[in-house]
Design a protein around this nucleic acid. Structure first.
Lengths: 244, 244
DNA sequence: TCTACGGCCGAACACTGTTCGCGTCAAGTA
DNA sequence: TACTTGACGCGAACAGTGTTCGGCCGTAGA
């Protein structure tokens, strides 16, 4: 039973079980995020992630319950990169916008992880840190806790939804990030032409304002919607003069 | 060649090619919507839809380019059910909310078709009819076309995103629609307990307001966010006193 | 020293969207 | 009336997917 192996039959030439570092959740999550950044979320399959460690998909299931949990872990890992501002109640509107922008930027930078974030109550440590900070800003502005909780929910829904929508556009426009802008210009041009070619009898307003409907890029639109939300919030502060 | 078939070998017992009505896009789309209503969007596979006509998946590809186009057609078909209010500029805020509520209701009623609507510029005839109406309300309120276009975009993003999130919750809570409410109550209860069990050193605000954070159902939250958006909109009307 | 256990992993299952190519039926043309 | 053409119907197959099963092995505990 203990016969030494002949030299031409080593226990798999050099690599197999030689000095394999054991898998960990963190390594798996980071590998998945690497794949998202390089190839998009659709490329993140269990087999693809496992291939990053020269192994099969089933090896991952010892560390991660299923793909959904992997998504949650990826989202939480990303939230680590969102900076938290020190609360300054006088500037609460601007601070909410700053935090929202940070979150949006992080999501957009990490491609379509936003998809994994939709419809998840944030329960990871880093996601909750961001939630707690935003909630604190709302409370500090003088809102009652129930409305602050709803506002928190709505603002995050907006951030995640926009980031998700954005990622779907990028995905549709092709894989080359440097060509995205010209594809975008071409696409909005076609869309404007289409609106302007509609019969005015059926779609009078779309027909008349094709130019306005296709103006502005993702950032401008995000900012515009953020203004809408925060301005609407100002009405909910009981005794404050809404804004300066 | 014209020998009559022996009685034990009829041209497929009774049903096969007897009097098959030809497939049409409309029938396919309606069958897909039937499946969504009964079994959820995840059950809508090409094979499943084809099975509704006792045929194979490949038969559908003569009428529908691919699954994405089928999704778009389903979404547009649903938009047919959204009633369009006759514009009354004096009540523009309430009318925007009515139209938004109608859209939300229709999406929620049709389960997770909202998923198919995210990141789609609406180009179907019925979807554009709804867009044109909402755009008209915004213009009628006195907004300049560019801002009205952005507002249109943001409002629909909000509606679709919330409906989508809602459908994901329903899906997660199990298949029985009558049990959804009690699952919801149980889930929010657990979530509240979880928040209240957090270390106050790390998450002071979440810890302190678990009750407030888990209050309100989907409708209340949708309405709250809608108020935020429309109130924020009121600031953009040049010479109007914001509201009555 | 033996035994248990937890991580590793190939194979398999039941799916998915989509394509290929063969049939067959209906309408148009000579 | 005979023939051709073309569109639709559809079984089979391809390349994927998430997940589970069962066996393997190396290490840690009794």
């Amino acid at each position: 039973m203990d016969i030494p192996l002949p030299p031409w039959r080593q226990p798999s030439p050099t690599r197999a079980r030689a000095a394999r570092p054991p898998l960990t959740r963190d390594q798996i999550v980071r590998a998945a995020l690497r794949i998202v950044a390089a190839e998009g979320l659709d490329a993140v399959s269990m087999r693809r992630v496992a291939a990053e460690f020269d192994t099969g998909a089933s090896s991952l299931y010892a560390h991660v319950a299923n793909k959904d949990e992997l998504y949650q872990l990826m989202f939480d890992e990303i939230c680590r990169d969102i900076p938290i501002p020190a609360p300054d109640p006088a500037r609460w509107q601007e601070q909410i916008k700053e935090l929202a922008r940070s979150g949006y930027e992080v999501m957009v930078r990490h491609g379509d992880v936003a998809k994994a974030a939709m419809a998840q109550i944030p329960t990871g440590p880093h996601a909750m840190r961001v939630s707690d900070a935003m909630f604190g800003l709302l409370l500090g502005a003088g809102m009652d806790p129930t409305k602050a909780g709803w506002a928190l929910d709505r603002i995050f829904l907006y951030i995640v939804a926009d980031a998700y929508e954005n990622s779907l556009y990028l995905q549709r426009f092709g894989d080359s990030p440097e060509r995205v802008h010209e594809y975008f210009v071409e696409f909005t041009g076609q869309l404007r032409d289409y609106y302007e070619s509609l019969p005015a009898s059926h779609y009078p307003h779309l027909r008349a304002h094709g130019e306005a409907l296709t103006s502005g890029d993702g950032r401008q639109r995000f900012e515009f919607g953020l203004d809408m939300l925060v301005d609407g919030l100002a009405r909910l502060i009981p005794a404050a003069p809404a804004s300066e």
